[in-house]
């Protein structure tokens, strides 16, 4: 099963490599990963999506917790949560394609954020599945480039991941 694990860690050199290294060292899987400092500049928040059965996920969270640089973590998929990913797509858009791509973008509530006579650059935010669906919907149109941030997530309601 897919899990989203969100980690607060020391914003220090080497912390990220310890987390990423742990996954390869112990043969755990990383599907997406993103990391950035938080409002507290001494802390970074790292979100990783991974796949594994209960035993593997338990090991992943336990091993992550053992890292000295990891301050706190939560498996967001254990509770109600919101997940988002940002994607930017560069699509070939000439002639009739231009209107069609624009329409598809509107349906998915994306935005065209850059335009040239032959190319649209589209920004889209949503759950990973929605981004996948958008790429599928673009169908025959030529995809020139796709860039995704990886999943970020937050718990619903009062629950917070903070110190």
């Amino acid at each position: 099963m897919r899990h989203i694990i969100s980690i607060l860690m020391e914003n220090e050199a080497g912390a990220l490599s310890r987390v990423v290294g742990l996954f390869s060292q112990r043969n755990f899987n990383i599907e997406t990963l993103n990391v950035a400092p938080t409002d507290d500049p001494t802390l970074s928040r790292l979100t990783v999506t991974t796949v594994g059965d209960d035993r593997v996920i338990e090991q992943i969270t336990k091993q992550l917790n053992k890292l000295i640089d990891v301050v706190k973590l939560v498996d967001l998929t254990e509770g109600q949560h919101i997940e988002r990913e940002l994607m930017m797509v560069k699509v070939k858009a000439v002639g009739a394609q231009r209107a069609e791509v624009k329409r598809t973008t509107e349906i998915f509530r994306g935005q065209i954020i850059d335009v040239t006579p032959s190319v649209y650059t589209i920004q889209l935010t949503g759950e990973a599945g929605k981004l996948d669906a958008f790429i599928q919907a673009l169908g025959a149109n030529t995809l020139l480039e796709v860039v995704r941030t990886g999943v970020s997530g937050i718990s619903r309601g009062e629950k917070v991941l903070s110190l």
Binding site: A13, G14, S17, R18, G21, Q25, I68
Partner: peptide, 14 residues
């Protein structure tokens, strides 16, 4: 050496 020893230390400092 921090990189080399990363998987075989409890922690490391520079």
């Amino acid at each position: 050496i921090i990189g080399v020893t990363r998987p075989i230390v409890k922690h490391s400092f520079s």
